[in-house]
Nucleic acid binder design. Sequence first.
DNA 1: CGCCGCATGTAATTAGTTACATGATTGT
DNA 2: ACAATCATGTAACTAATTACATGCGGCG
Lengths: 181, 181
Amino acid sequence: MALTHAIMTALLEDRLSGYELARSFDTSLGFFWKASHQQIYKCLRELEVQGLLSSEEISQETRPDKVVYQLTDSGRAELDHWVAGEGQLREAKDDLFVKLYNLNEKNLPHIQRELTARAEHTRARLALYRQIRERRYQRPQDMPLRQRGIYLALLAGINHCEQFLQWTESCEQLLASAAVN
Amino acid sequence: MALTHAIMTALLEDRLSGYELARSFDTSLGFFWKASHQQIYKCLRELEVQGLLSSEEISQETRPDKVVYQLTDSGRAELDHWVAGEGQLREAKDDLFVKLYNLNEKNLPHIQRELTARAEHTRARLALYRQIRERRYQRPQDMPLRQRGIYLALLAGINHCEQFLQWTESCEQLLASAAVN
DNA sequence: CGCCGCATGTAATTAGTTACATGATTGT
DNA sequence: ACAATCATGTAACTAATTACATGCGGCG
C-alpha cells in the first residue's frame, strides 16, 4: 500500500491527527494521492502497530480530543527505503477516454457536456495550483531541496492541467462539425 | 467496476476471447484502462452471468481452444446507459510525486535516475502513439464519429506524454545545480 | 530439450469504496 | 433550531494484485 508512504510523507515535518491528514489530502500531497478518512484512520492504526508511527492523545477544550501521529525513527528509515526503491508505474484509469471509444451520434451531446464539465473542473484546479505557486514558490531555485521537489510536483499539476485544457479545445474543434450534421 | 465497461467497449466491434482482450489491453484501450488477465477472465464470467455478454467456444487445430465473447443486446443497452451517466473523476495516483515530497540530498541521485527512467519510458510510449496516429489517423476530421473519439483519446495520450517530457526537463534544470552543491 | 506464445484459470491477499454511526462545538 | 466543522470510527462490499497452476504446440 503506497498510501502508507503518502501518509508518512505528510508526517515528515508535522505531527498530524487522522482528521488533519484527511484535510491535507484534500490539498497538497492529496493532489497526487487521494484517500478517504476511513482508509487513513485504518492505515494509521496499522502503521502504529508496525512501529512506524507513534501517537499521542491531545486534549482540547473547545474541540473534541484528537490523536496526533508522528514518524518514529524506524518509520523514517522505512520511508527512506521506499523512496530509494524502484517506483512502479500505475497506468492512469479514466472513464472519459473509455467513453470516447463509445462515441456516436446519440451520445455526442452528453460526451460534449462531460468534456465541458471536466474542462471547468480543470480550470478551477489550475487556478488553485497557480495561486499556490504565486504565494509560495516565486523563487524555487533559491529553496531547499525538499521545497523544490514539492514545487516540481506542483509544476507537474500545472502543466497537466494546461495540457488537458488545450486537449479539450481540440475535442471541441473536432466534434463541433459533427454536432451540426 | 468500470472494467466491465472497458471490456464491453472493446467488444463493441469485435468478438474476442479473454486472452485476446488481455492482449488488446496492452495496446489501444489499454492505454487508458489496464487490467490483468485474471481480472479479465473473472469479469467476463460475471458479465455472461448477468446476460450482458454471450460466449461461444471456438475449436482451433494448432492452438488451444478458446472462448470468444460478444455483446448481447442488453449489454449494448447497459453500455449506452453507462456512457450516458455521469463519469466520476478518479484522481491519478503516482508514486513519483509522493517521492518528490521526500526529496533531499541523499535521495537526489536516485530520484534523478527515476525521473530519467520515466522520461525514457514516456519517450517510447510517445513514439508508439505517434506511429499509430501516422498509420491510422492522418485525417481524423474525415472519419466517422467513433473513430474520431478514439483519435481524441490517442491525442490526449500524445499531449500528455509531450507535456510530461517537458516537465522532466524542468526537473533536470531545477535539480542540476543541487547535484553540484 | 527447453523456452515462448497461446489459453485459461484458482486462491489468497491487499487496497479502496460506500454506507452507516456517534458526539461535541461554532456560527447563522 | 439547524447546518457546518471537528474528530473518529465499524461493517460490508467491490476492485485489483500477487502468487501459483495447467496444458498444448511451435521453434531453435
